[in-house]
Protein backbone atom coordinates (compact mmCIF):
# COMPACT_ATOMS: atom_id res chain seq x y z
CA UNK A 1 0.00 0.00 0.00
CA UNK A 2 2.78 2.36 0.98
CA UNK A 3 4.86 1.49 -2.05
CA UNK A 4 2.10 2.20 -4.53
CA UNK A 5 1.36 5.49 -2.79
CA UNK A 6 5.01 6.36 -3.01
CA UNK A 7 5.12 5.41 -6.66
CA UNK A 8 2.16 7.56 -7.56
CA UNK A 9 3.69 10.38 -5.54
CA UNK A 10 6.94 9.99 -7.45
CA UNK A 11 5.16 9.87 -10.77
CA UNK A 12 3.16 12.95 -9.88
CA UNK A 13 6.30 14.76 -8.81
CA UNK A 14 8.16 13.70 -11.92
CA UNK A 15 5.41 14.97 -14.14
CA UNK A 16 4.71 18.15 -12.25
CA UNK A 17 8.32 18.77 -11.38
CA UNK A 18 9.62 18.91 -14.90
CA UNK A 19 7.64 21.44 -16.88
CA UNK A 20 8.67 20.15 -20.26
CA UNK A 21 7.43 16.68 -19.48
CA UNK A 22 4.21 18.05 -18.14
CA UNK A 23 3.59 20.22 -21.14
CA UNK A 24 4.21 17.40 -23.53
CA UNK A 25 1.93 15.13 -21.55
CA UNK A 26 -0.83 17.69 -21.64
CA UNK A 27 -0.42 18.32 -25.34
CA UNK A 28 -0.39 14.61 -25.95
CA UNK A 29 -3.57 14.32 -23.92
CA UNK A 30 -5.24 17.07 -25.83
CA UNK A 31 -4.20 15.59 -29.14
CA UNK A 32 -5.25 12.10 -28.16
CA UNK A 33 -8.66 13.35 -27.16
CA UNK A 34 -8.85 15.40 -30.27
CA UNK A 35 -7.84 12.46 -32.41
CA UNK A 36 -11.22 11.11 -31.59
CA UNK A 37 -12.63 14.12 -33.31
CA UNK A 38 -12.80 13.85 -37.05
CA UNK A 39 -10.71 16.31 -39.02
CA UNK A 40 -8.49 17.23 -36.10
CA UNK A 41 -5.46 15.37 -37.28
CA UNK A 42 -5.69 16.59 -40.83
CA UNK A 43 -2.49 18.29 -41.81
CA UNK A 44 -4.27 21.46 -42.82
CA UNK A 45 -6.02 21.59 -39.47
CA UNK A 46 -2.83 21.05 -37.53
CA UNK A 47 -1.18 23.81 -39.49
CA UNK A 48 -4.17 25.92 -38.61
CA UNK A 49 -3.70 25.14 -34.94
CA UNK A 50 -0.12 26.26 -35.18
CA UNK A 51 -1.17 29.39 -37.00
CA UNK A 52 -3.52 30.26 -34.18
CA UNK A 53 -0.94 29.27 -31.61
CA UNK A 54 1.54 31.74 -33.05
CA UNK A 55 -0.55 34.73 -31.98
CA UNK A 56 -0.54 33.34 -28.46
CA UNK A 57 3.05 32.17 -28.37
CA UNK A 58 4.65 35.40 -29.50
CA UNK A 59 3.27 37.71 -26.79
CA UNK A 60 3.78 34.85 -24.35
CA UNK A 61 7.50 35.47 -24.68
CA UNK A 62 7.10 38.81 -22.96
CA UNK A 63 4.59 37.46 -20.46
CA UNK A 64 7.01 34.68 -19.54
CA UNK A 65 9.73 37.17 -18.75
CA UNK A 66 7.32 39.28 -16.73
CA UNK A 67 6.16 36.26 -14.73
CA UNK A 68 9.73 35.19 -14.06
CA UNK A 69 10.22 38.50 -12.27
CA UNK A 70 7.06 37.92 -10.22
CA UNK A 71 5.08 40.29 -12.42
CA UNK A 72 2.57 39.79 -15.20
CA UNK A 73 1.48 41.42 -18.42
CA UNK A 74 -2.23 41.81 -19.03
CA UNK A 75 -1.84 44.47 -21.69
CA UNK A 76 -1.39 42.02 -24.55
CA UNK A 77 -5.02 42.30 -25.62
CA UNK A 78 -4.63 46.04 -25.86
CA UNK A 79 -1.40 46.15 -27.85
CA UNK A 80 -2.59 43.40 -30.19
CA UNK A 81 -5.34 45.66 -31.47
CA UNK A 82 -3.89 49.11 -30.92
CA UNK A 83 -0.67 48.61 -32.88
CA UNK A 84 -2.28 47.32 -36.09
CA UNK A 85 -5.04 49.92 -35.80
CA UNK A 86 -2.45 52.66 -35.89
CA UNK A 87 -0.72 50.89 -38.77
CA UNK A 88 -3.80 50.63 -40.93
CA UNK A 89 -4.92 54.18 -40.20
CA UNK A 90 -1.51 55.54 -41.11
CA UNK A 91 -1.44 53.43 -44.25
CA UNK A 92 -4.84 54.67 -45.30
CA UNK A 93 -3.49 58.13 -44.72
CA UNK A 94 -0.87 57.57 -47.38
CA UNK A 95 2.19 56.61 -45.40
CA UNK A 96 4.30 53.89 -47.04
CA UNK A 97 3.46 50.57 -45.46
CA UNK A 98 6.92 49.76 -44.29
CA UNK A 99 6.99 52.90 -42.18
CA UNK A 100 3.52 52.15 -40.85
CA UNK A 101 4.58 48.72 -39.73
CA UNK A 102 7.61 50.18 -38.08
CA UNK A 103 5.43 52.70 -36.29
CA UNK A 104 3.15 49.97 -35.10
CA UNK A 105 6.03 48.05 -33.60
CA UNK A 106 7.39 51.21 -32.06
CA UNK A 107 4.02 51.87 -30.45
CA UNK A 108 4.10 48.40 -28.95
CA UNK A 109 7.56 49.02 -27.55
CA UNK A 110 6.54 52.37 -26.10
CA UNK A 111 3.46 50.86 -24.49
CA UNK A 112 5.66 48.21 -22.97
CA UNK A 113 8.16 50.74 -21.71
CA UNK A 114 5.32 52.69 -20.15
CA UNK A 115 4.25 49.56 -18.33
CA UNK A 116 7.80 49.02 -17.16
CA UNK A 117 8.15 52.56 -15.86
CA UNK A 118 4.86 52.37 -13.99
CA UNK A 119 5.89 49.12 -12.41
CA UNK A 120 9.55 49.72 -11.70
CA UNK A 121 9.81 53.43 -11.03
CA UNK A 122 6.37 54.52 -9.88
CA UNK A 123 5.64 51.36 -7.94
CA UNK A 124 2.25 50.37 -9.34
CA UNK A 125 1.48 46.67 -9.07
CA UNK A 126 2.17 44.85 -12.36
CA UNK A 127 -1.28 43.37 -12.82
CA UNK A 128 -3.13 46.63 -12.41
CA UNK A 129 -0.60 48.69 -14.37
CA UNK A 130 -0.80 46.37 -17.37
CA UNK A 131 -4.55 45.84 -16.99
CA UNK A 132 -5.15 49.56 -17.09
CA UNK A 133 -2.71 50.30 -19.91
CA UNK A 134 -4.25 47.50 -21.92
CA UNK A 135 -7.70 48.92 -21.36
CA UNK A 136 -6.56 52.40 -22.34
CA UNK A 137 -5.16 51.03 -25.58
CA UNK A 138 -8.36 49.14 -26.22
CA UNK A 139 -10.29 52.32 -25.63
CA UNK A 140 -8.07 54.28 -27.99
CA UNK A 141 -8.50 51.57 -30.62
CA UNK A 142 -12.23 51.97 -30.35
CA UNK A 143 -11.95 55.71 -30.60
CA UNK A 144 -9.84 55.57 -33.73
CA UNK A 145 -11.97 52.97 -35.45
CA UNK A 146 -15.22 54.30 -34.04
CA UNK A 147 -15.89 50.98 -32.36
CA UNK A 148 -15.89 48.96 -35.54
CA UNK A 149 -13.51 47.13 -37.81
CA UNK A 150 -11.06 48.89 -40.00
CA UNK A 151 -9.67 47.31 -43.10
CA UNK A 152 -7.37 48.47 -45.80
CA UNK A 153 -4.16 46.57 -45.47
CA UNK A 154 -2.08 46.13 -48.61
CA UNK A 155 -2.66 42.87 -50.45
CA UNK A 156 0.74 41.43 -49.71
CA UNK A 157 0.19 41.87 -46.03
CA UNK A 158 -2.75 39.52 -45.69
CA UNK A 159 -0.71 36.97 -47.60
CA UNK A 160 1.61 36.73 -44.64
CA UNK A 161 -1.09 35.74 -42.24
CA UNK A 162 -2.80 33.32 -44.53
CA UNK A 163 -0.23 32.14 -46.97
CA UNK A 164 2.41 29.46 -46.79
CA UNK A 165 5.78 28.71 -48.22
CA UNK A 166 6.63 25.13 -49.03
CA UNK A 167 3.46 24.08 -47.26
CA UNK A 168 4.36 25.79 -44.00
CA UNK A 169 2.35 28.86 -43.14
CA UNK A 170 4.28 32.10 -42.78
CA UNK A 171 2.70 32.53 -39.36
CA UNK A 172 4.39 29.41 -38.12
CA UNK A 173 7.73 30.52 -39.47
CA UNK A 174 7.39 33.90 -37.84
CA UNK A 175 6.46 32.18 -34.59
CA UNK A 176 9.51 29.97 -34.85
CA UNK A 177 11.81 32.87 -35.46
CA UNK A 178 10.38 34.92 -32.61
CA UNK A 179 10.35 32.02 -30.18
CA UNK A 180 13.89 31.09 -31.13
CA UNK A 181 15.04 34.67 -30.66
CA UNK A 182 13.21 34.96 -27.35
CA UNK A 183 14.49 31.63 -26.10
CA UNK A 184 18.07 32.46 -27.01
CA UNK A 185 17.77 35.81 -25.32
CA UNK A 186 16.38 34.44 -22.11
CA UNK A 187 18.43 31.30 -21.82
CA UNK A 188 21.72 32.16 -23.42
CA UNK A 189 22.47 35.82 -22.96
CA UNK A 190 23.72 37.58 -19.88
CA UNK A 191 20.53 39.63 -19.75
CA UNK A 192 18.48 36.48 -19.54
CA UNK A 193 20.63 35.22 -16.72
CA UNK A 194 20.07 38.43 -14.82
CA UNK A 195 16.33 38.25 -15.43
CA UNK A 196 16.17 34.83 -13.82
CA UNK A 197 18.31 36.06 -10.96
CA UNK A 198 16.05 39.07 -10.49
CA UNK A 199 13.05 36.83 -10.13
CA UNK A 200 14.72 34.91 -7.36
CA UNK A 201 16.82 37.34 -5.37
CA UNK A 202 16.57 41.05 -6.13
CA UNK A 203 19.10 41.90 -3.44
CA UNK A 204 21.87 40.08 -5.26
CA UNK A 205 21.17 42.00 -8.45
CA UNK A 206 21.44 45.26 -6.60
CA UNK A 207 24.54 44.21 -4.79
CA UNK A 208 26.24 43.37 -8.04
CA UNK A 209 25.67 46.93 -9.12
CA UNK A 210 22.94 46.17 -11.64
CA UNK A 211 19.69 48.05 -11.76
CA UNK A 212 16.55 45.96 -11.25
CA UNK A 213 14.50 48.86 -12.53
CA UNK A 214 16.28 49.00 -15.87
CA UNK A 215 15.86 45.25 -16.27
CA UNK A 216 12.14 45.43 -15.55
CA UNK A 217 11.57 48.30 -17.94
CA UNK A 218 13.43 46.40 -20.64
CA UNK A 219 11.40 43.25 -19.99
CA UNK A 220 8.07 44.98 -20.43
CA UNK A 221 9.39 46.87 -23.44
CA UNK A 222 10.29 43.57 -25.05
CA UNK A 223 6.83 42.32 -24.16
CA UNK A 224 5.30 45.27 -25.96
CA UNK A 225 7.48 44.59 -28.97
CA UNK A 226 6.33 41.01 -29.30
CA UNK A 227 2.72 41.91 -28.63
CA UNK A 228 2.87 44.38 -31.49
CA UNK A 229 4.26 41.74 -33.82
CA UNK A 230 1.53 39.35 -32.77
CA UNK A 231 -1.01 42.10 -33.35
CA UNK A 232 0.23 42.64 -36.88
CA UNK A 233 0.20 38.91 -37.47
CA UNK A 234 -3.35 38.55 -36.22
CA UNK A 235 -4.66 41.42 -38.27
CA UNK A 236 -2.90 39.94 -41.24
CA UNK A 237 -4.64 36.63 -40.62
CA UNK A 238 -8.02 38.28 -40.29
CA UNK A 239 -7.36 41.01 -42.86
CA UNK A 240 -8.93 43.47 -40.47
CA UNK A 241 -8.57 45.20 -37.15
CA UNK A 242 -11.49 45.01 -34.76
CA UNK A 243 -11.13 46.21 -31.18
CA UNK A 244 -12.39 43.00 -29.64
CA UNK A 245 -10.30 40.60 -31.68
CA UNK A 246 -7.55 40.72 -29.07
CA UNK A 247 -9.69 40.07 -26.02
CA UNK A 248 -9.08 36.37 -25.65
CA UNK A 249 -5.31 36.83 -25.74
CA UNK A 250 -5.17 38.59 -22.41
CA UNK A 251 -5.86 35.37 -20.59
CA UNK A 252 -4.66 32.96 -23.29
CA UNK A 253 -1.09 34.22 -23.10
CA UNK A 254 -1.03 33.92 -19.31
CA UNK A 255 -2.61 30.49 -19.55
CA UNK A 256 0.00 29.43 -22.08
CA UNK A 257 2.80 30.44 -19.73
CA UNK A 258 1.21 28.71 -16.77
CA UNK A 259 0.56 25.61 -18.82
CA UNK A 260 4.19 25.71 -19.85
CA UNK A 261 5.30 25.60 -16.26
CA UNK A 262 6.01 29.26 -15.57
CA UNK A 263 5.35 29.84 -11.92
CA UNK A 264 3.28 32.74 -10.64
CA UNK A 265 5.75 33.05 -7.82
CA UNK A 266 8.61 33.89 -10.14
CA UNK A 267 12.03 32.51 -10.89
CA UNK A 268 11.16 29.85 -13.41
CA UNK A 269 9.72 29.36 -16.88
CA UNK A 270 11.12 29.19 -20.37
CA UNK A 271 10.08 30.67 -23.69
CA UNK A 272 9.97 27.31 -25.43
CA UNK A 273 7.74 25.79 -22.77
CA UNK A 274 5.40 28.76 -22.93
CA UNK A 275 5.25 28.37 -26.69
CA UNK A 276 4.35 24.73 -26.24
CA UNK A 277 1.71 25.84 -23.77
CA UNK A 278 0.38 28.17 -26.45
CA UNK A 279 0.14 25.25 -28.83
CA UNK A 280 -1.77 23.38 -26.17
CA UNK A 281 -4.24 26.21 -25.69
CA UNK A 282 -4.72 26.63 -29.43
CA UNK A 283 -5.19 22.91 -29.86
CA UNK A 284 -7.81 22.86 -27.16
CA UNK A 285 -9.71 25.78 -28.65
CA UNK A 286 -9.50 24.17 -32.04
CA UNK A 287 -10.79 20.85 -30.77
CA UNK A 288 -13.70 22.48 -28.99
CA UNK A 289 -14.43 24.44 -32.15
CA UNK A 290 -14.53 21.31 -34.25
CA UNK A 291 -16.93 19.82 -31.74
CA UNK A 292 -19.21 22.69 -32.57
CA UNK A 293 -18.98 24.38 -29.21
CA UNK A 294 -19.40 28.08 -29.02
CA UNK A 295 -16.29 30.14 -28.18
CA UNK A 296 -17.77 31.11 -24.86
CA UNK A 297 -17.93 27.54 -23.79
CA UNK A 298 -14.27 27.32 -24.70
CA UNK A 299 -13.78 30.13 -22.20
CA UNK A 300 -15.47 28.06 -19.59
CA UNK A 301 -13.07 25.20 -20.12
CA UNK A 302 -10.07 27.46 -20.35
CA UNK A 303 -10.96 29.40 -17.22
CA UNK A 304 -11.38 26.21 -15.23
CA UNK A 305 -8.14 24.85 -16.58
CA UNK A 306 -6.19 27.92 -15.56
CA UNK A 307 -7.55 27.98 -12.04
CA UNK A 308 -6.86 24.29 -11.71
CA UNK A 309 -3.27 24.50 -12.88
CA UNK A 310 -2.48 27.58 -10.82
CA UNK A 311 -4.05 26.02 -7.75
CA UNK A 312 -1.94 22.90 -8.16
CA UNK A 313 1.13 25.01 -8.78
CA UNK A 314 0.59 27.14 -5.69
CA UNK A 315 -0.22 24.17 -3.46
CA UNK A 316 2.93 22.37 -4.58
CA UNK A 317 5.06 25.42 -3.88
CA UNK A 318 3.53 25.72 -0.43
CA UNK A 319 4.38 22.16 0.39
CA UNK A 320 7.91 22.67 -0.88
CA UNK A 321 8.31 25.77 1.26
CA UNK A 322 7.01 24.01 4.34
CA UNK A 323 9.42 21.13 3.78
CA UNK A 324 12.29 23.57 3.49
CA UNK A 325 11.31 25.28 6.72
CA UNK A 326 11.36 22.10 8.79
CA UNK A 327 14.59 21.16 7.06
CA UNK A 328 16.09 24.41 8.25
CA UNK A 329 15.21 23.71 11.84
CA UNK A 330 16.65 20.24 11.58
CA UNK A 331 19.94 21.59 10.30
CA UNK A 332 20.24 24.32 12.87
CA UNK A 333 19.58 21.64 15.39
CA UNK A 334 22.33 19.41 14.11
CA UNK A 335 24.92 22.13 14.33
Amino acid sequence: MQKSVLKTKEFFRAVSGRPLVRTLVIIAAVCAAAALIPNFLKFSNLMNVLRQASVIAIPAIGVTMAMITKGIDLSTSGVIVFAPMCVVVLYRGGVPFFLCALCGILIGILAGLLNGILIARVGVLPFIATYVSGTIMLGLTMVIGNGGSVTGFPKGFTQIGNGSVLGIPWSNLIMLVCVAAGALFLAKTKHGNRIYALGNNEAVIRMEGLSPEKLLIAIYGIGGFFSAIAGLLLSSQLSTVHPTQGNSYQLDCVAACILGGTSMLGGSGTVVNSALGAVGIAAMRNALNLLGLHPYVQNLVLGSLIIFIVAVNVLLKRRERRQQESFHIRRAENG
Partner: peptide, 20 residues
Protein backbone atom coordinates in the same frame (compact mmCIF):
# COMPACT_ATOMS: atom_id res chain seq x y z
CA UNK B 1 23.96 33.54 0.86
CA UNK B 2 24.01 36.05 -1.98
CA UNK B 3 23.08 33.50 -4.56
CA UNK B 4 20.03 32.64 -6.65
CA UNK B 5 18.55 29.22 -6.10
CA UNK B 6 16.85 29.03 -9.45
CA UNK B 7 19.94 29.10 -11.69
CA UNK B 8 22.86 26.74 -11.83
CA UNK B 9 26.24 27.02 -10.17
CA UNK B 10 28.10 28.40 -13.17
CA UNK B 11 25.48 31.05 -13.88
CA UNK B 12 25.53 32.09 -10.24
CA UNK B 13 29.29 32.20 -10.29
CA UNK B 14 29.35 34.53 -13.24
CA UNK B 15 26.27 36.60 -12.40
CA UNK B 16 26.83 40.20 -13.55
CA UNK B 17 30.14 39.20 -15.08
CA UNK B 18 29.03 36.75 -17.68
CA UNK B 19 31.62 36.12 -20.41
CA UNK B 20 30.02 36.97 -23.72
Amino acid sequence: LNLCTNIDVAHNFYLANEPT
